[in-house]
Write a protein that binds this DNA or RNA. Structure first.
Length: 737
DNA sequence: AGGTGGTTGATTTTT
DNA sequence: TCAACCACCT
């Protein structure tokens, strides 16, 4: 094959090139961090099109986020000389499944204009069902019930697939019944939640009566491509498998070492099992890292090597050695933030760009300390995460109006705005309407239609409701012959919603009106109301259009897929990272996922990585003393520079400090103020009892437990009644006699 | 309808 | 500690 025909293949390394050119059969591309995964994916797509192997319409390419989908779209078109690709099925699992479901909705009792509800709506619906069924929503949080149901959906389980064993104690054992009712209710509302999009498609595909539907997709799709395969859950996997049965040309790209979403249903097992699932599958490893220095990569490799059950990769790089990873122990969280600030300023004075620096934390609350410090130093920063545009109150209200206009059975939307702005429709009226709706198995809107024909409602209320119905009918009649942006403006004005905020004197009111304008402006790029609403339900993302120089602060999860010259990884303490909860709830699996998170964190850095931990941290208003994360111990000595205050940490040696962190802090602050590098340890080495694995011990806070591992003065203890082990200092436990 | 005090509980988060 | 939520009050 003449090479010059495919200029985009130039510059690929042999493994990358093989991954691009292996077009037929099942292929798993194990792409380590920084090994050019996206390049392979996009080049492969370009290759399929350029060689004429497939028309765009014969390709199904799946991603997890809209961002990834957009990037892929853009990069493929760039490879093809700038022309956009039309007619292929490229998008997120949810977007693609929603698109399919629009065509076959009737097969699961929905109509094609079904509404997609988000988590918030789903929780509210479940709360209503629980209240109707006299289930104590205090004792069992509707959110927890919603989570349980969504978990089942992620596992591809319908109510009929569940047994009482699965139900457990939650909601007084009525969990399965609630699931059934919830599905029933969704059908009445002509609505779907996120899980349903895929689950309904599976139901359709599996039903022998609809064999032609699946066969049609088999004929259609000749090549399947899946990004971030390690993050797929069971339904997504089932959906892919059913679709792949046609051509058997499926290429999955992923990295088992970067699977960090197990807690929301991702199954690392999917990627680990690939060869079994797709017999004859080929596996290609991308192991040359083009991102990080040798020290950084070696440290990452060494940490992740502690995990079991990996497919295994050995990343290497031809980059320079670079600088060793800086590891630093500090007295408390404040000192840690101060130190990070200093390092950032030092880098800045060496002409490093703030845009190339990131602080990656384990949990959201950790951002605060850094924000405060950045403000004090006058360093611009940006926290990624937080409330999103479509989650703002006024946006949700406005969307609710549009949703009811487009699909009258959308009870959740109607309930949201039935008394917004205030129309004198109180709680009591809504309850009456709901009671009627439930009795008849109809929607709220239909209940209003019914009851306004009778005299059951007070005349004033009746009049208001009739007016509201009239409005909606009128707006709906305009859907087809009015521009959707114009109609939206009309709805917001005629309903009194805009006026409500204009009359509001609170300081945030102007901003809300601004957002509403932005909403209408954003609709411009969509063809119709339906198109816009579909987009809104499926795209909850924040686009970051910030410019200028700033340091990025975000969670490790949010950082996956990104890279920076300098990366700060603070809070590496047992209990915080690895997170205690993760270990408690998921044992070794949880710990290994935390370790993968550490791996993701380290591999974000191109040139410089800073890892730190504090001896004392204020959590939930209490001072807690902490010991360095076990992940710190897993960093190879030859690749790190340890530089800690006051002997807070010596690699490989035990650490000690008093449990009375508060007093210690006072003492220490004085000490650091006057002698910042005092070499003495906070506490003298104390002679204590010697422990060994297998012994029974007692801990003040955690109770009785069995030692499973001893590491100097650190003990791994399996406490009775807890799933995972905890790591504690031996000075906090006593032997059980 | 709007304000207040008391309780609760507190990772990670996309679609 | 602190914010969110709710029951209860005005």
């Amino acid at each position: 094959m003449p090479l010059q025909q495919f200029p985009y293949l130039d510059g690929l390394n042999p493994a990358q090139r093989e991954a691009v050119e292996t077009l037929d059969g099942a292929l798993l591309v194990l792409a380590g961090a920084g090994t050019g995964k996206t390049r392979v994916l996009t080049t492969r797509l370009a290759h399929l099109l350029t060689t004429g192997r497939a028309f765009p319409g014969q390709i199904l390419a799946v991603t997890f986020t809209n961002k990834a989908a957009a990037e892929m779209k853009e990069r493929v078109s760039a490879l093809l000389g700038g022309q956009p690709v039309e007619g292929w099925w490229l998008g997120t699992f949810h977007a693609l499944a929603a698109r399919m479901l629009r065509r076959h909705a009737e097969l699961v009792g929905l109509s094609g204009n079904y509404t997609i509800i988000d988590q918030d709506d789903s929780v509210r619906l479940i709360k209503q069902l629980m209240e109707a069924g006299n289930i104590d929503t205090k004792k069992w949080a509707p959110k927890a019930v919603a989570d349980a149901i969504s978990k089942w959906k992620d596992q591809g389980k319908l109510p009929s697939d569940l047994s009482m064993d699965d139900a457990g104690e939650m909601a007084g054992g009525k969990l399965i019944s609630l699931y059934t009712q919830y599905q029933q209710r969704l059908k009445t509302l002509n609505a779907c939640d996120f899980g349903d999009l895929l689950l309904h498609m599976i139901t359709i595909f599996k039903n022998p009566d609809n064999a032609d539907v699946l066969a049609d997709y088999h004929r259609r799709f000749h090549y399947l491509l899946v990004d971030e395969y390690q993050d797929t859950n069971v339904v997504q996997y089932l959906w892919l498998r059913l679709l792949a049965k046609g051509s058997n040309n499926i290429c999955c790209v992923g990295d088992d070492d970067q699977s960090i979403y197990g807690w929301r249903g991702a199954e690392v097992g999917n990627i680990l099992r690939f060869e079994k699932d797709f017999p004859g599958a080929k596996i290609i490893r991308l192991e040359e890292n083009y991102r990080s220095t040798k020290h950084i990569l070696a440290a990452a490799n060494s940490v992740i090597a502690n995990n079991e059950g990996r497919l295994g990769k050995d990343l290497f790089t031809s980059m320079d050695n670079g600088e060793k990873i800086t590891v630093r122990g500090l007295w408390d969280g404040e000192a840690e933030a101060r130190w990070v600030g200093e390092e950032i300023e030092a880098l800045q004075s060496k002409q490093w760009s703030l845009n190339q620096m990131a602080i990656l934390v384990r949990a959201g609350f950790q951002t605060r300390e850094f924000e405060e410090r950045m403000i004090q130093l006058g360093l611009p920063y940006k926290v990624i995460g937080g409330p999103r545009f479509y989650e703002r109150m006024e946006i949700r209200d406005a969307l609710a109006y549009l949703r009811v206009t487009a699909q009258t059975n959308d009870d959740l939307a109607l309930e949201r705005i039935i008394n917004t702005p205030k129309r004198g429709i109180g709680d009591a009226t809504v309850q009456t309407l709901y009671a009627h709706a439930r009795n008849r198995g109809i929607s709220l809107y239909q209940a209003i239609l019914d009851l306004t024909q009778t005299d059951e409602l007070r005349p004033k209320v009746k009049g208001t409701l009739m007016k509201l119905i009239d409005d909606f009918e009128r707006w709906r009649s305009m859907l087809d012959n009015t521009k959707h942006t114009e109609l939206t403006g009309m709805i917001l004005d005629e309903s009194g919603y805009t006026q409500m905020w204009q009359a509001d004197k609170s300081p945030e009111a102007p901003g809300r009106l601004e957002n509403l304008k932005e909403l209408v402006a954003g609709m411009e790029e969509f063809e119709s109301m339906a198109g816009f609403l579909e987009h809104v339900s499926l795209v909850m993302e924040n686009q970051n259009n910030a410019n200028g120089e700033f340091v990025t602060i975000m969670t490790l999860h949010a950082a996956k897929g990104l890279e920076y010259d300098a990366v700060f990884l603070p809070g590496w303490e047992e209990g915080l990272f690895p997170s205690q909860r993760s270990m408690d709830e998921n044992g070794l699996k949880g710990l290994e996922e935390e370790r993968r998170l550490a791996y993701v964190g380290i591999t974000r850095a191109r040139k410089k990585s800073f890892i730190s931990f504090a001896a004392n941290r204020r959590m939930y208003g209490q001072w807690v003393n902490a010991i360095p994360s076990r992940f710190v111990d897993e960093l190879p000595e030859e690749h790190v520079d340890v530089n800690s205050d006051s002997g807070l940490y010596d690699p490989g040696r035990s650490q000690h400090w008093d449990s009375s962190g508060f007093q210690m802090r006072e003492q220490m602050q004085r000490q650091t103020r006057f002698a910042p590098r005092a070499a003495s340890r906070p506490m003298a080495e104390v002679e204590g009892p010697v422990f060994s694995a297998g012994e029974r011990v007692f801990h003040d806070k955690f109770g009785n437990g069995t030692i499973i591992h001893v590491d100097g003065h650190k003990l791994d203890i399996q406490f009775d009644g807890s799933d995972g082990s905890k790591r504690v200092m031996d000075s906090f436990v006593t032997k059980n006699l």
